[in-house]
Amino acid sequence: MQRPTHEVEYEQMLLSRHTFLSRRGGRRTDAVLERSAYILLSRIRVQGPMSIGELSDAFGLDASTLNRQTAAAVRAGLLSRIPDPEGGMARKFRLTTQGERLLDEERRGIVEVLDRVMADWSQDDITAFASYLKRFNNGIEAIGGRPWPRPSSQDDETDG
């Protein structure tokens, strides 16, 4: 007999294939931000300005990968480099006004698609699904030792 985790694995695999789809009609060309930029900007928005070292620790990626990603985001006008607000030596990255605007636009579009996907779900079902998904992610983060900060409920309302 297969364990239920086999079904979770398969459904998670299917879910991961959808992450590259854009928010509008499933056409990638409609995406506002590349997936890696969306995740990078989302982390900096929740945590505040971060250095390459902090980003490397947060994502579990080597500094050269983060250097490429942040350089592309700076060239695109999504991030800017600033002195460490706490007086440290390393420069940090913060969202620009354009980065904030595009992140908000992308998030609104993703939520619109999720609203369409779950149009026939009850509020209770959506709330339960969100709770299970958060619990699932928290379990992964605990094993990996890289917890992801989450915005407060008030922040969620102002972001979208």
Rank of each mutant, 00 (worst) to 15 (best):
M1R: 13
Q2R: 14
R3W: 08
P4R: 13
H6T: 15
E9I: 07
E9K: 05
Y10F: 13
E11W: 08
Q12H: 12
M13V: 11
L14Q: 12
L15Y: 11
S16L: 13
S16W: 07
S16N: 14
T19P: 04
T19M: 12
T19N: 10
F20P: 05
S22L: 01
R23C: 13
R23E: 15
R23P: 06
R24K: 15
D30N: 14
A31M: 02
V32Y: 01
E34G: 14
R35L: 10
A37V: 00
A37H: 06
Y38I: 03
I39G: 09
L41D: 00
L41M: 03
S42G: 15
V46R: 08
V46W: 01
M50Q: 06
M50T: 02
M50C: 04
S51L: 00
S51K: 02
G53N: 08
G53H: 07
G53F: 02
L55M: 04
D57L: 09
G60I: 01
A63G: 09
S64D: 09
T65M: 04
T65W: 01
L66P: 03
L66Q: 00
N67P: 05
R68Q: 13
Q69W: 09
Q69N: 11
T70S: 04
A71F: 06
A71N: 12
A72Y: 04
A72E: 08
A73D: 02
V74S: 03
G77A: 05
G77Y: 00
L78W: 02
L79V: 04
S80W: 03
R81V: 02
P83M: 01
P83V: 03
D84G: 03
E86N: 11
E86C: 07
E86W: 03
R91L: 04
K92R: 09
K92V: 01
T96R: 05
T97Q: 11
G99D: 00
G99T: 00
G99E: 00
D104K: 14
E106N: 05
I110H: 09
I110V: 15
I110Q: 13
V111R: 15
E112S: 12
E112F: 02
E112W: 00
E112G: 11
L114S: 10
R116V: 08
V117M: 06
M118C: 11
A119M: 06
W121H: 08
W121P: 05
D124V: 07
D125Q: 12
T127D: 14
F129H: 10
A130V: 10
S131Q: 09
K134E: 14
R135C: 11
F136R: 07
F136T: 09
N137T: 10
N137A: 15
N138Q: 15
N138V: 09
G139P: 07
G139Y: 03
I140F: 08
I140E: 12
I140T: 11
A142S: 13
I143A: 15
G144K: 07
G145K: 07
G145H: 06
W148H: 12
W148G: 09
R150F: 03
S152G: 09
D155F: 01
E157S: 14
T158K: 13
D159S: 13
